[in-house]
Amino acid sequence: MSDPGLKGETKFFFEPKTIDILLAMMMTLGSEISALSEKLDTVIDLLEAGGADVEGFTPSPAQQARRDAARKVLIETLLAPFQHEADALARQKE
């Protein structure tokens, strides 16, 4: 994991260094989730100020299907580097 914006050697604490990279990814995800939570909290406050029942909302089948599809895309995106590895291994086999 070379970072062109930094001078000097990057110390990796784990062998393999993939673990250092994964911990970095985890913290990135955490910061994204924290930001999303705050944004959502704002949206809920605004909606409830207008009388909406956010917690009591039940998605319609079409809305749920849209959410299911979005979740699937997110998971495939998250796992994409690993999927590429699986695909490459499977190709080598042939």
Partner: peptide, 9 residues
């Protein structure tokens, strides 16, 4: 999606 990688390994 991914378990085929184990078989390939």
């Amino acid at each position: 999606g991914l378990s085929k990688g184990n078989r390939a390994v």
